[in-house]
Design a protein around this nucleic acid. Structure first.
Lengths: 216, 216
DNA sequence: TCAGCTTATGTCATAGCCTGACAGACAGCA
DNA sequence: TGCTGTCTGTCAGGCTATGACATAAGCTGA
């Protein structure tokens, strides 16, 4: 995002990155003010004076641009999962990968109107059915990969042993919950998210083991 | 689907239902042979000789038609959940609602080329990214409703007590797994699905309680 | 049976998303 | 300078979806 950080970059590459960043920034601005569905692609490209056709040379679709950061977040999670030390217990691994991913999000993202860019994107997604659908599909696809990673780490066959699926399902539910909390009451920071995670984990056993009631 | 079953139905209503059914049948045929994305709406409407515009008076979108049965399945599940007797334990309730929904699916659906129509649809969805995304979003929306139903049954506040979310997340994972199994190795019947459900439930406690490994 | 209302459909026009094909501009390199 | 490969603009077109208006068909009451 900072042009000076790649001084060795060729002029051609730099211009390309500038155009891509300009597309993202302009698009997010327009999405925020006019809404995703009421922003035409040509409005984005007109604003930075490139042809509409150019947009589709950078992004496969309008959706693709809007989900740029979400995809990165998901990929980061799977990468973090795969990179955790082998001795770690699976639940701990997921928890740590989760922590790393969100610390990264909060760390290296730059601000827009005083709030991190991914927050804008999450609100946008939650308020736009088409984007919500696409991001859920990405989570779904990513779950498959995460299950493979977990299964290989623990040397189990996911077709027989359902535990990897369970863990990832819980992770998915957690991410959804975290997004929900962000949307309504703002972002409480990494520690709040981990507290949510632990609350899930703590309630998991009792939820299934005995009778499920307010007193239990 | 059988015209004789509503003898009192007005001519207008009957024609409307016939057109709707013809649209669904023709569309599924074309989707199956040509693929969803390579089937244009005008091809569907040409085949039964109505205007393209008419299609969009019956269905909000091409997607809407393809997900017709999925939406019904989801709604049936939530309805079944709400209708279960109050004394039942939550996990049992979900299990029974699950059973009811799929028994209903297998019962009253009519055959296409020797297999139930919803099987065609599920394969279609799993092989079409756009449809998968849309159906996941519908599951997501439905989860919210299911959580509300469960929470009210058990008099808990879902914002504090995460257990309703956990149960529904597990249900979601199960549905995904069942669909996966259907897609690859055909449909094994209600009992197989319940066995999957129970396998999840049985592995849930041990998965979290102790160290998660092949020996545990 | 006819008039009048409602509903379903057809027709036309248009916006928006997306792709393919081709040509021109430009950076990088010999 | 001239060649090469990449990026971009332009044009044409297909597909999904919606709005506006007109027409036809079904229904209802006198």
């Amino acid at each position: 995002m900072d042009d000076a950080s790649w001084p060795d970059e060729s002029r051609r590459r730099r211009k390309k990155r500038q155009t891509r960043d300009a597309l993202i920034d302009t698009a997010l601005d327009l999405f925020e003010t006019k809404g995703y569905e009421h922003t035409a692609v040509h409005e984005i490209t007109d604003a930075i004076d490139v042809a509409e056709r150019t947009f589709f040379r950078y992004f496969a679709s309008k959706e693709d641009l809007a989900l740029f950061f979400v995809k990165q977040e998901m990929d980061d999670f799977t990468d973090a999962l795969a990179a955790r030390p082998a001795g770690e217990a699976p639940l701990t691994t997921v928890r740590n990968a989760f922590r790393q991913t969100f610390e990264q999000l909060q760390g290296d993202d730059h601000l827009r109107n005083g709030e991190p860019r991914y927050l804008t994107v999450i609100r946008l997604i939650d308020s736009t059915p088409a984007l919500l659908a696409a991001s859920l599909r990405y989570v779904y696809d990513n779950s498959d990969r995460a299950v493979v990673v977990l299964s290989e780490r623990e040397h189990v066959d996911p077709d027989v042993d359902r535990r990897p699926w369970l863990l990832i399902a819980i992770y998915g539910a957690l991410v959804a919950l975290v997004h929900r909390e962000w949307r309504t009451s703002g972002c409480g920071g990494v520690e709040d998210m981990l507290a949510s995670f632990d609350a899930y984990a703590d309630q998991l056993g009792p939820a299934i083991a005995g009778r499920w009631s307010t007193s239990g």
